[in-house]
């Protein structure tokens, strides 16, 4: 039984094309907004230039790092991380607040601790404030 291509095309009504295109647009939108980087996956904690911890950003947790001045506390929540406390005098890294994008870095220079977020397809190599 043959059913030529033109006959299949006759089954499609004008609105169907619109619905299909809208569906495709939704796909593209979902793909771009969900799969295109920018989402951090792990937090890298460095002390004295050495990587001391690679923390998963899926679960909330706290992590303490020792530096020359004392303890720096890193706080992780799903999808974000921050330096909660630091013994440094000017508190720049603490005041930077939550890091939410892959590539974002908070550096506690006096205590030689840094917190950076990494993820696949990061939008930026490094983000500093």
């Amino acid at each position: 039984m043959s059913f030529p291509l033109a006959a299949w095309r006759a089954l499609i009504r004008p609105g169907d094309v619109l619905v299909a295109l809208a569906g495709l647009a939704l796909c593209v939108h979902a793909f771009v907004s969900l799969w295109q980087g920018g989402r951090p996956e792990t937090a890298l904690v460095r002390a004295g230039g050495k990587l001391v911890a690679e923390l998963d950003l899926a679960l909330p947790q706290e992590f303490d790092v020792r530096g020359p001045l004392g303890m720096t506390r890193i706080e992780i929540q799903p999808g974000r991380a921050r330096v909660a406390t630091d013994p440094g005098p000017r508190q720049y890294c603490v005041r930077q607040g939550w890091l939410t994008q892959a590539g974002a870095v908070a550096i506690c220079a006096p205590n030689q601790v840094s917190l950076s977020l990494s993820g696949r397809g990061a939008d930026y190599d490094s983000l500093n404030y």
Binding site: I12, R13, D16, V19, A20, G23
Partner: peptide, 18 residues
């Protein structure tokens, strides 16, 4: 209830799938 003239089973199917 969409106008039949414009929207056929293909539309229904895509909308239902979503």
């Amino acid at each position: 209830h969409l106008p039949r003239r414009w929207f056929g089973p293909v539309s229904h199917s895509i909308l239902a799938a979503f």
